[in-house]
Design a protein around this nucleic acid. Structure first.
Lengths: 225, 225
DNA sequence: GAAATTCTGGACCACCCAGTCAAGATAGTG
DNA sequence: CACTATCTTGACTGGGTGGTCCAGAATTTC
């Protein structure tokens, strides 16, 4: 399941306002947890496909608390996107920049192995999940990317971040002479990003596990000779 | 512009019901033209993002006529998808199966050239169009693919058709020895489909022309040695 | 002319939408 | 205790949703 990818256990914060003179009742619900539940919903149903009703039911907070804590629907969505980025970075993207040694196996991790691992992770935790299937950012790009400039900028920045992480790994591979001769790391990174988020489209169109795996294999085959 | 890709001039049909005894007033509007205008709207705004109001305004027919001719919103959308497929096949996919000679230049068209031409066409007419950006079928896959099984089947069949067309071209190239040694035409076809519809995501996320072109270049580079 | 069928236009429906507001309970602080 | 801020609950708004229905005008064939 994907859940543990973004819904980690965290210590419940108490007494947010200890620096204030007078401080009454503290927040009873966990904003981050509520945000995660909103994320889950937006991820599956999209922005327009998720109604306030749905959100209140799944976040299990009152209408009041939602508006007090997160603002209106669009503000909530922007916070969800930020949270998604943070979780994706620490949960997946970090596997790309983590160079050196793989902890459980204790053997050197080449950049190419790290890249393949990244794709495997994305395949397992996002693409093959029945009611995710696709990256939230990719969904958002399709749904409102060309309509809402601010949201588009968020998505674009996220894709840029993924591209940069891939580029860094590819540059290391390039230095190590692991790439095919004449390769351009930046172009390769862009190609990998394209391949990555194409997978979401194919998955939601009903592509099978074998076909998706083939796409990854061929997509990655441009790296090596 | 993209318009001529799907909005061809057609002879106005007259007297649909000549086989009937009594036949009064015939349809005044052109169903196919109205369908094209609905297609345009769904393409840009998505299924949920397009309201009945929008449709009536853009199709320029009465509420009555819409329901009489196309049924409810979902039925209309299914007809739109069918129309899109027909137009895409005759407007783009045919360039893949059209083997032999290119008409204006009159020189032999290799399968690889045809494939590149297909990507160029898609890039120019869909991806680089400001308020299209992405294939309608890809948009639909993301928006309702995992929710509506019937629509998913339509999208899946369409992608299968594209994959088959690419596969046929690749098989020809394979026979002609144009592909890299050890290539698997079916796997390559799937990879190309993935690359193709990833472009829509990147475009709607705001990717620039140069980046998109690089993605195509690298994506196609797996074909040749 | 009569009959048949489509057209236009607007009224109407029940429901859902995002967002606001008020009332009162509750729980921390001093 | 008083004070303060958050909580929950529910009512409410104005407007939009997809969808139905009806009346009357228009148009074609018999």
């Amino acid at each position: 399941m994907v859940q543990n990818f973004y819904a980690q256990e965290r210590p419940r914060p108490r007494a947010y306002y200890q620096h204030l003179h007078e401080m009454p009742r503290i927040k009873e619900f966990e904003p981050e947890a509520a945000l995660d539940r909103a994320l889950d919903l937006f991820w599956r149903r999209g922005y327009e496909g998720t109604s306030l009703r749905d959100l209140l039911d799944h976040m299990d907070i009152s209408r009041q608390s939602l508006y007090d804590t997160f603002g209106d629907k669009r503000s909530l969505f922007l916070k969800v996107l930020a949270r998604y980025e943070a979780l994706a970075v620490e949960g997946m993207l970090d596997t790309l920049t983590r160079t050196g040694w793989s902890r459980p196996i204790e053997r050197p991790l080449t950049a190419l192995v790290a890249i393949r691992g990244f794709f495997e992770l994305f395949l397992a935790e996002v693409v093959l999940d029945r009611d995710r299937g696709s990256c939230l950012m990719a969904n958002t790009a399709i749904e409102v990317g060309h309509t809402d400039p601010e949201i588009q900028a968020v998505v674009r920045a996220y894709f840029g971040r993924v591209e940069d992480a891939l580029h860094a790994a590819l540059a290391r591979a390039h230095e190590a002479g692991e790439l095919r001769a004449g390769s351009e790391p930046r172009a390769l990174a862009r190609h990998l990003v394209n391949t990555l988020y194409g997978l979401g489209v194919m998955s939601r169109a009903g592509a099978g596990r074998a076909a998706l795996r083939q796409m990854v294999d061929v997509g990655l085959s441009v790296l090596v000779a």
